[in-house]
Amino acid sequence: MKVLLICAAGMSTSLLVNNMKKFADAQDVVEAFPVAQLESVIDNYDVVLVGPQIRYKLKDIKKIADAHNKPADVIDMAVYGQMKGKEAMQMAKKLLG
């Protein structure tokens, strides 16, 4: 599973990335990027998780994600703030169905 995390500058989500990697399998990929780069990197991933602080951009993000056939959704505020890697990984798996 390849997870793409998107936030404003890719900085705060990179904190969550570190915690998610603890619950990732060896072949899993978890990486963070700023929202401006979404379109150029989305093809390398299976699923898109969005930081809650830019949830106002979800519509735009979903448009791009849909065009590339990738599921995308906003990370729960508490999961995000407390950097809960396990829950975020579970959310990614759930989105992939």
Binding site: S12, L15, Y80
Partner: peptide, 10 residues
């Protein structure tokens, strides 16, 4: 970078 405290405490 304040997202952890803004969303974590919250």
């Amino acid at each position: 970078i304040v997202e952890p405290v803004v969303f974590g405490l919250p």
